[in-house]
């Protein structure tokens, strides 16, 4: 009887071990073969939000009508990465588009605001060269990326008053920007890897940017040194 029980115990143990081995094999199958996958880096994408306040060459024309409107400027930028020195910097170029609208009231002969609306709408279009230095986060784990941009901007503008269009045109000039960004990959490297594997997004960052637009002398003086914040991706 004891012998039979011992044989049964051995047989059951063998079955259990075999089953355990099979489960372990299945778990191994679930692990991706290559966790170090890195997708190609081709583009940079940025979404900008920030106030805009045309300086009008120091005249108070703009402030007289739109002093209460900071005209939130919403903008998108897409850069093509032309050259990449691994873990050091990107060099590329691209373009952007934005939109802002300023609303105020017309003024009467006494200079008092009436109830009638007057508006100015701008749509900046630009081409830019981009130099993005990311050696700090990639080499030493310091989460700051520095970016410089230089380009040319065509800012379409249109103005209306009392529901009727009054004028429109383009203001053209140089555009520059300096950006400091907080590299999000440094804080969540595993999430960054997953984003790359699933979405092809290599890096993501939050940024603060100072930019300047200097229209030439023939243009409506819509230039401004402004700031914006936003979210960017390297894809």
């Amino acid at each position: 009887m004891k012998r039979l029980a011992a044989m049964l115990f051995v047989a059951l143990s063998a079955c259990a071990l075999h089953a355990q081995g099979a489960v372990a094999q299945m778990e191994e199958d679930l692990i991706p073969p290559d966790r170090s996958f890195v997708s190609p880096e081709r583009f940079g994408f940025e979404f900008h939000l920030g106030p805009y306040h045309p300086d009008f060459d120091g005249e108070d024309t703009f402030d007289r009508f739109f002093s209460d409107d900071s005209g939130l400027l919403v903008a998108l930028e897409l850069d093509v990465i032309g050259y990449r020195m691994q873990d050091t910097f990107y060099l590329g170029g691209g373009g952007g588009i934005g939109w802002a609208k300023f609303s105020g009231n017309t003024i009467d002969d006494a200079g008092e605001a009436t109830s009638e609306e007057t508006e100015l709408e701008i749509v900046p279009l630009n081409v830019i060269g981009v130099f993005r230095l990311d050696a700090l986060p990639r080499r030493w784990g310091v989460p700051f990326i520095f970016t410089g941009k230089l380009g040319y901007q065509w800012m379409y503008w249109t103005t209306e008053s009392g529901g009727s269009d009054e004028a429109n045109g383009w203001s053209l000039g140089l555009l520059w920007a300096g950006q400091v960004a907080l590299d999000l990959d440094t804080f969540e490297p595993s999430a960054a890897r997953r984003m790359d594997e699933e979405w092809g997004i290599n890096h993501s960052f939050l940024f603060f940017e100072i930019s300047g637009f200097e229209p030439n002398s023939d243009s409506l003086p819509l230039g401004d040194t402004s700031w914006s914040v936003g979210l960017g991706f390297i894809m």
């Binding site: 009008f56 060459d57 005249e59 024309t61 703009f62 007289r64 009508f65 739109f66 105020g104 017309t106 003024i107 009467d108 002969d109 009436t114 009638e116 007057t118 508006e119 100015l120 103005t159 008053s161 009392g162 009054e166 004028a167 002398s217 023939d218 243009s219 409506l220 003086p221």
Partner: peptide, 18 residues
């Protein structure tokens, strides 16, 4: 009432472009 719009005001500025 007679009003002055942003564009009219800009045009009346002596420093306006041309």
């Amino acid at each position: 009432v007679p009003t002055t719009s942003f564009w009219e005001d800009y045009q009346s500025d002596p420093n306006a472009v041309d």
